[in-house]
Structures are given as C-alpha cells and as structure tokens.
C-alpha cells in the first residue's frame, strides 16, 4: 500500500468517525428537546435524512479532496524516486534535480547526491586500481616469461627441467591473457577505449567465423550449422566484432558435449541485426544465468574443467563489445537441452 492510499484511508476513517459522533450527539439533543415538548417522534427520520443528504456527500467530497491533497504533497517524492531509479554506475556524476527551497525533500535530495558522488568516487578508485594493477603486473610478467624462455634456450637442460620450464611458460602465458583481458575491461570501464567505426558486412564476418567454428568443433565431434545468414551491414569495429563472434563460438564449443551441435543464425529483425549461437551443452542453471557475464564467473565448477583453460573474461568482453556498439546481448538456457546467446546490433 502506498503512503498516499494509507494516509487517505486514515483521513477518511477520522472523518467518518467525527461524522458519526456529530450525528449521534445531534440525535441525542433532538430527542431530549422532543421529549420536553411531547410531540410525535419523527426526529430519527430527520437525522437519517440529514446524514444521507448532507453527511455522506460531505464525507465523499472530503475523501476526494484529501486524496488530491496527498497526491500534491507527495508528488515531489514520486519525481525524486523516478530520478533516483535512473541512477546507474555510468551516470553517477549527474546530480538529482533539487528544488532549492530547503524543505525536507530538498535536503533528502542533497543527501542522495552526496551519496552518489561518494559512490562515483569509489567506482573510479576501483577502476583505477584494476587499471594500475594490470599495468603493474605486465613488467614482472615480461621478465618472468622472458627469463623462462632464456632458460629454455640452454641446451644442457635435462628433459625434466625442460618440461618444468615449459609448463611454467604455459601458465605464464595464461596469466598474460588474463592480465590482457583485465586491462581491456578496465580501460573500457574508464571509457579509454575507442572503436574504429566503419560499415562492416556482418554476414561476411559470420561466414568466416562459421568456418573457424567448424574447425574448432571438429576435435570434439560437435556439428556446426549456419541456419541463416542474411546479408547485413552494421556500423562497427571489424576487429572487435570478430573478437565477439569468436568468443561466442569458442564458448559454444567449450561448453558443448561430445557429439553435440551448434547452430548459428544471422537475421534481420525490427531494423536490427540479430545474431544467435545455440549449443546443446549441459547449459547454465537458472541461478547462475544472471551472472554469466560477470568477470571471472564460472558456473558449476564440476562441469567445465576443460573450459577453465580460458581466462574467465570472454563473456564480459563480449558484453562490453556489444554495449560499445549500442546493442544488446542476452543468454537463455534450458539446462541439458539448449543454451542460446543472442546479440542484437543496430543496422547502419
């Protein structure tokens, strides 16, 4: 129940109660007078008529008036709520509009504004931290992998030492990919990445990607089908779009099962390009679904040991690329049946 309804009901209750008290008192008064002059008793009818013709309309009018007054009084709160609802991590610097008349609501708005400003500061600090951390990690990583490689050039290394060094190098390269992914996302968050926008024929990219996916899927006996590929052109960054398509395809292969299948589709719908990749893997549980775009999120760890080879940032990067192209990405999953990632991009 909203405050407005609740207050209107209380107000109506109080009015009704006072009307009843007044009616009762006047009835008693009339009755006494009547007893004194001993005339035929029609005071009850008088009172009932009075209540019907004047009392009830008066109460209804007051309730209506009260509702209107409440609405007026609470309107600034509604406006404030609506403005506050529009706050997200990207527009924290935009303050809520203040009335400037110094009333309770104006003070509340001011408090909210200070709060979002503090939030913005924390967001910026976290972002800067990730950016600096990923940057700082690169020098020691370069030194470590460079020295490991130098070590590997030594002919006198025993097979065991060589195997150790090679395994270390593999892990260092994985670490490097994670750091790369983090840098990319931290820069995207800070708005430091720009896209090279140009008309890109999306169907061509999809067809290329389809060929690559077929090759990637072969090892696990997964069938790949291109169900539709309409000629479509979007305004985008070809490199990033390729990265997006490969990310999605790679996921569809990794999270599939032996002998499963992948279906890709590119079509036009309501003036947008719609690209989807479905796979027949074990899928994502409904509880994990909203979190798959989170950084480093891995669903059920028991299911995807193999997929853990990746850097855990693929879908987050995909989400950034889509958002940077003013598109939308979503994932749907019927566990053990079909998992579909759909990307919608504006057509140029």
């Amino acid at each position: 129940m909203t405050i407005r309804t609740r207050m209107t009901l209380w107000y109506a209750g109080v009015l009704l109660l006072s009307a009843l008290i007044i009616a009762g008192l006047s009835f008693k008064e009339l009755r006494e007078r009547h007893d004194n002059i001993e005339e035929p008793d029609d005071s009850l009818q008088d009172v009932i008529a009075l209540i019907c013709w004047i009392g009830i309309p008066a109460v209804i009018l007051s309730i209506g008036g009260g509702w209107w007054l409440m609405r007026r009084a609470l309107a600034p709160i509604t406006t404030l709520t609506r403005a506050a609802e529009g706050i997200n991590e990207r527009n924290l610097t935009q303050p809520l509009p203040r009335s400037g008349n110094g009333d309770e609501l104006d003070r509340l708005t001011q408090v909210l504004n200070t709060m979002t400003a503090r939030l913005h500061e924390s967001f910026t600090r976290i972002r800067d931290f990730t950016l600096h951390a990923s940057h700082e990690l690169k020098t020691p990583l370069t030194v470590l992998s460079g020295e490991t490689e130098t070590e590997l050039r030594d002919e006198s290394l025993s097979p065991r030492e060589r195997e150790h060094a090679l395994s270390r190098l593999d892990e260092l390269q994985r670490l490097a990919r994670i750091v790369d992914g983090l840098t990319l996302l931290a820069k995207a968050d800070a708005g430091l990445l720009t896209l090279n926008l140009a008309p890109v024929s999306l169907d061509e990219l999809v067809r290329e990607n389809f060929a690559d996916t077929q090759i990637l899927a072969q090892a696990s006996g997964v069938r790949v089908e291109l169900a539709a590929c309409e000629p479509l052109s979007v305004k985008g960054d070809a490199h990033r779009l390729r990265q997006l398509l490969l990310n999605l395809a790679d996921n569809a292969v990794k999270y599939n099962q032996q002998g499963g299948s992948i279906t890709m589709k590119l079509s036009r719908s309501n003036g947008s390009a719609l690209f989807s990749v479905s796979n027949t893997g074990p899928g994502v549980s409904p509880t994990a679904l909203p979190r798959v775009f989170d950084r480093f999120f891995r669903g059920d760890p028991a299911h995807n040991n193999e997929a853990a080879d990746g850097c855990g940032l693929g879908l987050s990067i995909a989400q950034w690329i889509v958002a940077a192209h003013h598109g939308e990405i979503k994932i749907e999953s019927l566990p053990a049946k079909l998992t579909t990632v759909t990307v919608r991009l504006p057509i140029c």
């Binding site: 690559d212 390729r242 990746g310």
Partner: peptide, 19 residues
C-alpha cells in the same frame, strides 16, 4: 592470416596447423 589484432585465447591456430 586471420587479421585479428588480439589473442583470442583459443586454440584456433593450433587446430588449423594440425589440419
């Protein structure tokens, strides 16, 4: 060969080399 300016973190190249 692919005109990628990023490391996609897949074994795409290795699979093609194998073929």
């Amino acid at each position: 060969v692919w005109d990628y300016d990023f490391d996609p973190g897949t074994n795409l190249v290795d699979v093609y080399i194998k073929r």
